[in-house]
Computed example of a mutant assay.
Amino acid sequence: MNPTTEITPPGGYYNQNGAAVLPQQVVAIAIGRNEGERLMRCLRSLLPQVDRVIYVDSGSTDGSALRAAELGAEVVQLDMATPFTAARARNAGAARAPDAAFLQFVDGDCEVETGWIAHGLAALLAEPRLGVVAGRRRELHPEASIYNRICDVEWNTPIGPARAVGGDMLARGAAIREVGGFDPGLIAGEEPEMCLRLARAGWGIRRLDAPMTIHDAAMTRHAQWARRARRSGHAFAEVSWRHRAGPEGFWKRETRRPLFWGVALPLIILACALLTPWAWLLLMAYPLQIARMALRDPLPRDRWTRAAYTLLAKFPEARGVIEFHLRRLVGRRSGLIEYK
């Protein structure tokens, strides 16, 4: 057994120097709104792995807060007079554990895999400058729709040093507090944005080769998928704009791609079509790009469908980019873009 993960009968974790890290130092923070049974599964998966679970509720009307308290979670209910964001909810949970050595953040539609927290904790104990670790997130029902299967592949990111992680992460409390936590003004993309600030402060971010969470996307309709893509475009635009002066060029390419495929190229084709009917041949750029992505995809199942949806997503993503900048120019704050 790895010496950093030895678990003794009292339930403590020990680092290489023999210093105990008590379960109370690992605080789990789950966030959600109207997640129903998904939240119950989330909390039940956490309670055996840590001694303290904080659930931050954002105006649920389905009894989530009461049911969470009955299970044994400490409930924080956000004042909905202030606009809700996932970042604000995570910060509220962290504020209830100001001295926690380690924080396990998880979205309320996810279950935490058995043994994940011990595995992630071992990695954090082994490297003092490692600030955040995440493992493999997988979909609960990939067979239910192509949209769920797309998510399942999307979660399967490379193992090793990472530029960013998502909403499920085990983090060093000191690192989160040093950078001021999540930006509560972001309606999406708050996790990569915080990871950018962590990296600038010298903290490491790593994806571990271990199962971490089971996500329930519950995406069965095209409209849900399109709203999710639109939210991604908004996040790309807002985070890249906020850090536009940084040397990393963070999310600049992700912002430009939807504008090219979803706006610029269609306008170029239409403009050229006024001069010559041969301009419609430029539409071949779309199937050629789909073929290019599909042939480069190492996973054979659904590769052509995934490639088509990846390109098709550039249109709602472009809408999200444009919406952000239009609201920015008129001084209006964007509201949440939810897909379920």
Rank of each mutant, 00 (worst) to 15 (best):
T8P: 05
A285C: 05
V21W: 13
I146D: 07
G167I: 09
N17W: 15
G11V: 11
E317F: 02
R328S: 06
R292F: 13
T157W: 02
A237Y: 01
C195W: 02
G262S: 02
L170G: 01
K340F: 08
V21H: 14
E191D: 15
G32W: 02
Y13W: 15
D107Y: 06
M212F: 10
R230P: 04
I31H: 00
F182N: 10
M80D: 06
A126G: 12
A291N: 03
V112Y: 08
R96Q: 14
I290V: 15
G185Y: 05
A30W: 06
V132M: 11
I268S: 06
A245H: 12
R292Q: 11
E248D: 13
Y147E: 07
P192Y: 04
S45D: 02
E178Y: 10
E6Q: 14
A264Q: 11
D51W: 11
R306G: 07
R327F: 02
F105Y: 13
W280T: 12
V76E: 06
G11D: 09
T8V: 13
P192K: 05
W225F: 15
V239P: 03
M284T: 12
M284S: 14
R301Q: 11
A171H: 06
W304N: 02
L103Y: 00
I187Q: 05
L311K: 08
G131M: 04
D51K: 14
G32C: 00
R303H: 04
D168E: 15
A171N: 03
E178P: 07
L22Y: 15
E139H: 09
M80G: 00
V321A: 00
W304M: 06
N34Y: 01
R200H: 14
Q289P: 00
A97R: 08
L274E: 00
G108W: 00
E35W: 05
W203N: 02
V179E: 04
A308F: 15
T220E: 09
S232A: 14
R138D: 05
A101G: 15
L282D: 04
T220D: 09
V56R: 04
A86F: 10
H243C: 01
A229Q: 11
D57P: 04
A175L: 09
A229D: 01
A307P: 03
I205T: 10
I268W: 01
L170F: 04
F84V: 12
C151A: 12
A81F: 04
R177A: 14
V106F: 02
R253C: 02
I54M: 04
E238F: 05
M212K: 08
A210K: 03
S58H: 09
W304Q: 01
P98A: 06
H119Q: 13
L186S: 04
W225C: 06
D302M: 09
